[in-house]
Design a protein around this nucleic acid. Sequence first.
DNA 1: CGAGCATTGTTAGCATGCTAACATCTGATG
DNA 2: CATCAGATGTTAGCATGCTAACAATGCTCG
Lengths: 246, 246
Amino acid sequence: MRKNQVPELPNHGACGQLVALTLQHLPRDRELGATRRYGRGEEIWAPEDRADRVYFLKTGQVVIRTGKIHGRDFVLQLIEAEHPFGELCCCSAIGGLRHSAAYAVTESAAVEIALNEFVQYLKTHQGALMAFMFGMCIRLTEAQRSTEMLTHRAAEARLGRLLLQLTAARGRVETKDAGEVALQVSHQELAEMAAMSRAHVTVTLGKLRQRSLIRYGRNRSLVVNPSSLEQYLARGPRARNPVSGV
Amino acid sequence: MRKNQVPELPNHGACGQLVALTLQHLPRDRELGATRRYGRGEEIWAPEDRADRVYFLKTGQVVIRTGKIHGRDFVLQLIEAEHPFGELCCCSAIGGLRHSAAYAVTESAAVEIALNEFVQYLKTHQGALMAFMFGMCIRLTEAQRSTEMLTHRAAEARLGRLLLQLTAARGRVETKDAGEVALQVSHQELAEMAAMSRAHVTVTLGKLRQRSLIRYGRNRSLVVNPSSLEQYLARGPRARNPVSGV
DNA sequence: CGAGCATTGTTAGCATGCTAACATCTGATG
DNA sequence: CATCAGATGTTAGCATGCTAACAATGCTCG
């Protein structure tokens, strides 16, 4: 009785863009927070810093990692312009500390707001609070997909699922009819997201390319065919024959 | 400049209990949703079901999994009484579908609320919305910790971190002075959370037991010494000597 | 008590990902 | 053009987790 029946709510997949709280929803008059600038690769916070501020990225790109960049740690999240980051409240942070690290990928600027100030703002702006809450739901969904991706131990499964996630989150449509999506990402970056070695990413991508599930080359972006890839992964590791190359 | 300075906000770790929205915050007069009952092991939703309802668990326990229970899938989240689940809004769900599965672990009862009804309630109850938002922050933090745990490929690291997570989330204090925490969990359950095989969980727990980082036995609960374990894991896999047994 | 069942313990052999090292290719830079 | 840095491609050997199967233990229930 709870299967796909008549949709009770319109199903508009991309509505995340519309409802999540972004920089545009904050007051423009600078009464909230102050802008900070970061150079390429600069640390924004470290694991042992207090989680007492929220940021909204104005320009550039920011990456949230599981730990300091020179350790054996991985990427948790990529933040694009306009979006909030560091938004986990002090209460939810373990011991009030970050337990993660944030770095500017490229030269970046972000509005930094003290947590209590931000919470006060949300309390007095119902719409912003609602939007922020929806944004949190979206983040949580993404985090759960990452978790799901990481539970796959086989390289093709893990990397394949990561690609599907990325095409959904930040893909650029390549061919309308074939439904292909282009990604701008290096093997190194994929390795850090999928928690694999760079070498193994290269090898595994090569296998997917042989099967024509993806296309790429030096200096050309990675083009994914999500539906074929999805179908391939759904078949399960057992059902796969080696590529029948000759 | 952003290191540990004077705390700007009180650091009360357990405040999650106080601020997250639970069943207690909903109106008692049943104007919201209806109670449903589930038998032990019964499916509450499947991956292909529409994500158009929110639940609050009244009694029992519920588990959210990455997929149907007989496949090779794993545990995303455990839900205890009073807490909400299925709370990812339709917008954030991919294509409006669940992409996860929920099962009653034990005989359970839950209030089921249509999503639009719930959103409407939040819109008209500022406090509930705020509490719900904080709850989402907590969930997101937990999800990111799970992700971090899964990026560790070595068995001791992954399982050890899972234990630390569990002691923080649902541990029962065993000895006050030694700071030990007891967990009620089977090797099978640990395997499903850490995405390992059951046999390997047994072996790895055995190693941790040999090092006196944990205690357990048939029919006795798993007792963890979080600080020693934390310290042990922080040393890193390379620094470890084999157990100097004799 | 005895049978059945779930949990924990153990092992051999296999599959697969990682490390490390090096090769190739491309674009940028002086 | 020559050089360099970064990205991709490739391989051999090793480390480690998994599969599968079975043993041992303790609880539950007739």
